[in-house]
Design a protein around this nucleic acid. Structure first.
Length: 655
DNA sequence: GAGTCTCTCGCCCTCTGCTGGGTGAAC
DNA sequence: AGTTCACCCAGCAGAGGGCGAGAGACTC
């Protein structure tokens, strides 16, 4: 993937500009190249060039207008490929080729191309080997949309990439001889003799290219196309990034191109100019010489203009003031841009795939990545890749743990400013915004959480939710829950033998035994039967567990014994106030047995069991008695709505 | 050669939305 | 006491706005 950035794991993100290809990444690309037989163009940008460079491998094509085809020669540097066009007359047979509409993205210096123009506009761009007088059948083509030629526009275009059998002279001829190995795009070489016609190729894949058209030389009626391949990789044989070494004489080269016009070409980059003065001025950009020093901060600048702009930052001089607001800028261009953003809202860069438009071209390029899915900026520590540098930098905080944003109130730290802002709003602000659910009374602090609420509770479900207690069916969870609440206090289980009703089925099961006389729980020691398991457990504990030590709570005043602390406390208060008549007038006397507040029938049948639960070995010891409750739930009491524990029964018996 | 304009890159910001852990109430 | 669930909250990423500044082109 072109433009992939890989940073040194040990380096801070701010060093990403100096990144180099990872060895393993490079080897992967090498393998890929060998596997698919495609000779890809690879680039190694200079330090600082790669960041945010989304379109390596761009083609820049000057296209003189006219009703005839145009041949062009290419030069290239690490970023763009310049194709100088040359007129070519198309025959009627050649015109048919225009409908082929294929792209051969491989191109090298010396390659030539043809841009036929028919009808209302250009349709195809055909590339030829140098010596362009060969047949147009020996070429491949780019099919272009007509809209591309509306000037000053950037288009994202989808091309069908043609894989070709290309017989390449020299070293490549061997591979070309084998069809299997020769399938794929081949680098054009100077003087190559044979190129298979496009019709014999096959469609390999679709690729997205960014095509930008802008005016060229008006005198020659030129259009300049910049075709940026979002996928092309860099040439491995190109030297890795190195600081340009400026030589006064040998850096620039004067070249005579196809039209015989002199052009001046920079050897260090793709810069070409028809004027030597321009080239000389350009060469200064490769120089590290910065003779203009700021006397305030000693920062050096290459030109006087740059120094002056810099000085303005010290003095606050901003001569270009906005007439519609208080903003002011150092340059007029900044003012114009500001006005477009804030006041005129003029957005000349329009996306061809959606309604998005932007003030700046770079914003459109960034936006287009959301269509193509291109993520040029790869995290060196995980698989994440971002579409722009800022997101990668922000992502790197997840690895470094950096939390640069601090709440000024509680000093909590956050990775993103927005998170801190929400925190302050929710935690430290008085007028916290709330979001009212439109379907219920819920008021939720965050809009995103309201969305979750709506999704969970108010989203229609195809499969209805069935009520456990009735036949009602609901398709919204909120309605279902509300309905369930209506059953909350409902005694839906009714006894078929008496008027008893209860809320829980298990209660009814136990109750029914009072009618049937069923006692399914049998003591294995004495064969005594019990209607409830809990009663059996108490029985076993009291009668057959030799380790059982009952706890006694004794009234400090009268000495009455209780099995439960709270009962003793209640008694003790009455005893102290004189309300409670002493029922334990004498130690060792039996406590008067009281009828437990349990159903009458249960009382009859379980009296013995209740007695077992209260008395230890049928006797109360003087000053004690403590059949301690086991804590298990005992159910089935007809006059008790809630679950009854063993302690509760004992409590009743205590009274 | 200097000044100006235009384009581009890079950085930072906000807004937005999703996700998952924590928590407390209800069951 | 355990489970479920709604809500709270921070973390994190996507998308886009805005501006500072550098560099090339153009004009005088």
């Amino acid at each position: 993937m072109a433009g992939t950035e890989v940073s040194d794991p040990l380096e801070q993100f701010t060093k990403i500009k100096e990144l180099e290809m990872m060895p393993e990444k490079a080897s992967e690309e090498e393998e890929e190249k060998e596997k698919d037989g495609v000779c890809r163009v690879k680039e190694h940008p200079r330090p600082g060039e790669m960041e945010a460079e989304c379109t390596p491998g761009a083609l820049q094509t000057g296209i003189p207008g006219g009703g005839q085809g145009l041949a062009l020669a290419t030069t290239e540097d690490s970023e763009k490929h310049v194709l100088a066009l040359q007129a070519v007359h198309l025959s009627s047979d050649d015109v048919a080729l225009q409908e082929v509409g294929w792209l051969l993205p491989q191109h090298q210096a010396g390659m030539q191309a043809v841009v036929p123009q028919t009808g209302s506009g250009l349709q195809s761009l055909l590339w030829l080997g140098e010596g362009s007088q060969q047949s147009l059948h020996q070429c491949v083509a780019i099919h272009l949309h007509d809209e591309v030629y509306s000037l000053q526009e950037v288009e994202l275009m989808e091309f069908h990439v043609l894989e070709e059998h290309v017989a390449v002279a020299g070293e490549d001829s061997k591979s070309a001889a084998s069809p299997d190995e020769g399938v794929g795009l081949r680098k054009f070489e100077r003087g190559q003799e044979e190129i298979q016609p496009p019709a014999e190729g096959r469609v390999d894949e679709k690729q997205f290219f960014l095509v930008e058209a802008r005016p060229g030389d008006e005198r020659r009626n030129e259009i300049v196309l910049t075709i940026s391949n979002l996928n092309i990789e860099e040439p491995e044989d190109k030297p890795a990034s190195s600081q340009p070494h400026v030589g006064k004489d040998n850096s620039a080269k004067i070249q005579n191109k196809t039209q015989g016009k002199r052009s001046f070409h920079c050897d260090l980059c793709m810069f070409t100019s028809s004027r030597i003065s321009s080239l000389n001025r350009h060469m200064k950009t490769h120089s590290t010489e910065k003779p203009h020093i700021c006397h305030l901060c000693l920062k050096a600048f290459r030109t006087v203009t740059l120094l002056r702009n810099h000085l303005n930052t010290h003095t606050g001089t901003r001569p270009y003031k906005c007439g519609d607001c208080d903003m002011a800028f150092v340059t007029s261009g900044e003012l114009v841009r500001h006005r477009r953003y804030k006041h005129t809202h003029e957005k000349p860069f329009k996306c061809s795939m959606c309604k998005y438009a932007s003030v700046e071209a770079s914003k459109l390029k960034r936006h287009i990545r959301s269509h193509t899915g291109e993520r040029p900026f790869q995290c060196c520590l995980c698989s994440y890749a971002s579409k722009d540098t800022y997101k990668l930098k922000r992502h790197m905080r997840t690895h470094s743990g950096e939390k640069p944003y601090e709440c000024h109130v509680c000093h909590a730290r956050f990775t993103q400013s927005g998170t801190m802002k929400i925190h302050i709003l929710q935690k430290h602000s008085e007028n916290v915004p709330k979001y009212q659910c439109p379907h219920c009374a819920a008021v939720i602090a965050r809009k995103s959480d309201l969305r979750v609420h709506l999704r969970n509770l108010h989203t229609y479900r195809d499969t209805g939710l069935n009520c456990r207690y009735c036949s009602a069916v609901f398709h919204e969870r909120y309605d279902f829950i509300q309905h369930q609440k209506t059953h909350k206090n409902e005694k839906k289980f009714k006894c078929e033998y008496c008027s008893y009703a209860c809320k829980q089925e298990r209660h009814m099961t136990v109750h029914i035994r009072t009618h049937t006389g069923e006692k399914p729980f049998v003591c294995h020691s004495c064969n005594k039967c019990f209607r409830q398991k809990q009663l059996l457990n108490v029985h076993v504990k009291k009668h057959h567990n030799t380790n059982f030590i009952p706890t006694v709570y004794e009234c400090p005043k009268c000495g009455r014994a209780f099995s439960r602390w709270n009962n003793m406390q209640t008694h003790s208060k009455k005893c102290n106030s004189g309300q409670e008549k002493s029922t334990t007038s004498g130690k060792g006397k039996r406590m008067k047995k009281r009828k437990p507040a349990i159903p009458q029938e249960a009382d009859k049948r379980d009296e013995a069991a209740a007695e077992e639960a209260v008395l230890v070995n049928g006797e109360r010891y003087p000053g004690e008695v403590v059949p301690v409750g086991c804590g298990e739930t005992i159910v089935g009491s007809e006059d008790l709505e809630e679950d009854v524990t063993c302690e509760m029964i004992l409590n009743v018996l205590d009274k």
